[in-house]
Write a protein that binds this DNA or RNA. Structure first.
Lengths: 257, 257
DNA sequence: CAAGACCTATTTATCCTACAATACGGATTA
DNA sequence: TAATCCGTATTGTAGGATAAATAGGTCTTG
C-alpha cells in the first residue's frame, strides 16, 4: 500500500518525515547508520516494523543506494535489524540488540527515558565492578597496577572537571584490564557511558571531590595490597557515593521546579 | 614496500594463502565478514596489521568489491577494524573488539586457545549470574516467573541431551530477562556460548543429570519465593557443579593420553 | 642542511547502472 | 474453497567510474 494514501495527522506526518542527514565529520555510511540507528533505538520504528526501503532512504538522505546499504549493514552487525529480499529490513526485538555496543549506547543515551537508563547503568556497575576489583586484586600484574595507580593520581591532580572525568574512566578501565579476563573488557563502554553521563551531576564542591578521591584511593590501595574482599567493598562504597550524589542533584532539581 | 618482495618461508606462505570462501546458506557479504573475521580473531592478522586491500579480497574470494565492502562494514561495526583511505583496513587492538557479540564469540570459540576461553566464560558467569538471579528474585513479574519455571520443567522432561541444553539456555536467559535490567540481556550470548561449549563435556550419567536438575530447581524455587540471597547461592552451587564436571572430564581425558 | 610546501600514487569512499534471487500476495484454476 | 502459479517489489550481487583522502616522496626555500 502506498503510504501517501494513508490518512495521517499533520503531527504524525511531521514525526514521520525524515530529518536531513547530519553531514558530520565521519563518512556518509556511518552518518546513515547513525541517523537510522537513533530513530530505531528511540522507538520511532518499533521492533517488528519494516523500514522504508533502500531507495527511499537514498532519496531522503540524497545519497547513493550503496551508501545506504553499507549503513544498513552496520545496523545489521549490531543486531538492530535483519534484511531479506522482497520483504525489506525488519527491526529486531530489543533483547537481540547489542546494547553493550559503544554506538548503540551513545544513541540510546539520547533517547527519552534517560532516568531509567541511568539507573540501569548504575545497577550494572554494582554487579560487575566490585567483582572486577576483587579479580584485579588477585591477578593484577605490576604493569597493570601501575596503570591503575597512575590514573588515580591523575584524578587527584586534574586541573579541570573534564580531565578528572577522563582519568576517572581510565582508572576503572585499568581495573577491568587488570582482571586478566578479556571478556570483561567490552564492559568498559558501560563505565564510559555512566561516568560521562554522571559528569553533569557532579558537584563542584571541594568537599565532595575530596571525598570521592578518597574512595578511589581506597580502591587503589586494596587492589595494590591484593585484598580482594576489601577492594570489593571499597568499590561498593564508591558506587553508593555516586548514587548519593545523583539523588541529591535530583532532589535539588525537583525543589527548583 | 611490495609484499611480494619480502622473503617468506613456504610454510608462512601457505598460511597466508586465502582459503576459498565458504559459500554457505547466508549471503555473500556475511560469508566474507565471517571469513575475514575468523582469521582476525584467530590471530592471523594481529592488531595493528593492515589487511589486504578490497580489490585483493574481491579477487581471492571471486566476489564483487561491493560485497567485500559490505563485509568489511560488518567487521567495522563490531570494532574489529577501522578503514581509512590510502592506508587500508587496520586491525584494532583486542580490547576494542566487541567480544560480547554473538558472531565474534562464535568465531572466537574456534580459535586455538579454547581452554582459556572456556575459563574466561565460566569466570564471567560467576560474576554476572548470581547477581542476576538475586535481581530476578526481587523484581520478576508473574509472566517472567512462568517462563523460568517452564524452562526448568522442560529441562526435566527433555527427551535428548540437545533439547535439554536448549531448555537450559532458555532457563538462564529467562532469569536475565526477569531482572528487568535491559543492559543484562546482551550477556545472554555468554551463557549461550558457555552452555553450548559445555555441552560436549556433559556426562550422560543419570546421577549427574539428576543432580544438575536439582540445582536448577533450587534456583527456580528461590527466585519464585523471592529470596535473593538464597538464589544467589543456588546459582553459585550450579556453577561450581559445572566446574566440577569440566574438571572431571578434563582429568579423564588426560588419563587417556 | 633543514624545514616546510607541494606533488603523486594508492586506497578507500561514493555514486551509478544493471541484473539476479527471493518471496509476498494476488490471480487463477481445480 | 483450497491449492497452485505467477507477477512484482525489494534486497542481493556485480562491475565500473569518479571523488576524496592521505602517506610518503620530492621539490623549494630560508
Amino acid at each position: 500500500m502506498d503510504k501517501s494514501t494513508a490518512p495521517l495527522s499533520p503531527a504524525l506526518h511531521r514525526r514521520m518525515a525524515t530529518p536531513k542527514l547530519k553531514r558530520g565529520p565521519g563518512s556518509v555510511h556511518s552518518s546513515v547508520a547513525e541517523a537510522i540507528g537513533i530513530r530505531i533505538v528511540r522507538g520511532e520504528f518499533p521492533p517488528g516494523t519494516i523500514l522504508p526501503n533502500e531507495a527511499k532512504w537514498a532519496a531522503d538522505f540524497k545519497v547513493s543506494r550503496s551508501a545506504v546499504r553499507e549503513g544498513i549493514k552496520i545496523l545489521m552487525a549490531k543486531n538492530l535489524l535483519v534484511s531479506r529480499p522482497k520483504v525489506g529490513s525488519r527491526v529486531e526485538p530489543r533483547e537481540r540488540w547489542s546494547l553493550l555496543d559503544h554506538d548503540i549506547l551513545t544513541w540510546y543515551a539520547t533517547a527519552p527515558n534517560r532516568e531509567k537508563f541511568l539507573l540501569s547503568l548504575q545497577q550494572f556497575r554494582y554487579i560487575v565492578e566490585p567483582e572486577a576489583a576483587a579479580l584485579a586484586a588477585e591477578f593484577h600484574s605490576e604493569e597493570q597496577m601501575h596503570e591503575i595507580s597512575a590514573a588515580c593520581q591523575d584524578m587527584a591532580t586534574a586541573p579541570s572537571l573534564h580531565e578528572r572525568t577522563e582519568a576517572d574512566v581510565r582508572f576503572h578501565l585499568a581495573i577491568l584490564r587488570a582482571t586478566n579476563n578479556e571478556l570483561l573488557l567490552p564492559l568498559g563502554v558501560i563505565i564510559d557511558q555512566a561516568l560521562n553521563n554522571l559528569f553533569i551531576f557532579i558537584t563542584r564542591q571541594a568537599n565532595d571531590l575530596h571525598y570521592a578521591q578518597d574512595l578511589h584511593e581506597k580502591i587503589e590501595r586494596n587492589i595494590r595490597l591484593r585484598k580482594p574482599q576489601a577492594a570489593r567493598i571499597a568499590v561498593r562504597n564508591l558506587l553508593a557515593n555516586s548514587d548519593e550524589v545523583m539523588r541529591r542533584s535530583q532532589s535539588r532539581k525537583s525543589r527548583k521546579n
